[in-house]
Design a protein around this nucleic acid. Sequence first.
DNA 1: CAGATATGCTTGCAGAATCAGATATTGACA
DNA 2: TGTCAATATCTGATTCTGCAAGCATATCTG
Lengths: 150, 150
Amino acid sequence: MSSPRPIDDRLITTFGRLVEAYSQLERRLGGALQAETGLPHVWFEVLLRLARSSQGQLTMSTLADEAALTTSGVSRLVDRLLAAGYVERRPCPTDRRITYAAITDAGREVLDRAAVVHARNLRRTFADFDPDDLNTLDALLDRLRRTATA
Amino acid sequence: MSSPRPIDDRLITTFGRLVEAYSQLERRLGGALQAETGLPHVWFEVLLRLARSSQGQLTMSTLADEAALTTSGVSRLVDRLLAAGYVERRPCPTDRRITYAAITDAGREVLDRAAVVHARNLRRTFADFDPDDLNTLDALLDRLRRTATA
DNA sequence: CAGATATGCTTGCAGAATCAGATATTGACA
DNA sequence: TGTCAATATCTGATTCTGCAAGCATATCTG
């Protein structure tokens, strides 16, 4: 016969868990990545999206969406990646408003090196998750991602 | 017969999904919360932990752990919450190094109001998740949180 | 009990993200 | 065509966060 306080709402707790799980993992894995490869986690995520895209390039806006940053944030982030030699800016031949961020060979190199390290750390973190668990998690996260984007 | 590039590692993709799902939700729901109640999402999370704790108070360190911030970050955050009148600092009678952050009545009020709004937004976001889905998600996130903390 | 070490919190400084606003280009439509 | 709205990006000011260092208090050890 407990009084249902607003703060005890079930979904608030679930969402809190998501926040906490993400933050802990981000801190631990992101920190390890940077310590072992010198690559900040955000850089890794950005380079990853670029490397996986068809021409190795994305518009600033698309990149902002995928990295969950503002275009402003991406603009400066690309500045730093540019200074490091990991990306370059390319004009769009058909729409002069658009600038592409394109990954360089140097970018692909550090990314590949970092990916190996990151994958190893992830295997340790997810050690007691069997394939079924992972599939379930993937599916749930994907649904969340899509409902949030919509 | 695809060459297995390091960046196509399965866990990297899963983790990428977690990052994206979290970021999208945080942006959308956090933004909505602030727009509709004036309460930044971090403030909400902090007040929530305090309100749920036994005496309505936690040490700065504990709060830092739970909110996934550094003690430094919490120190300043509590400064701001203090200025807003939502928390107060209390000395610990037995250990004078410790400072408690305690939620005030005003803090509980805004928190309750915000919780109602937040819960409504969450119900919309999780509309097509049935109880089984939620339980599964909870369990997986909890395992992740614990492996990360360990 | 004295000295060394550990713990809890706060502050100076610097890095990075956001918001708001400016600029440039494109597309739509009367 | 000329004007107006929409789109894509960048920049200035502000805010928040973390790291490193510092101060005060507590605990351990010989």
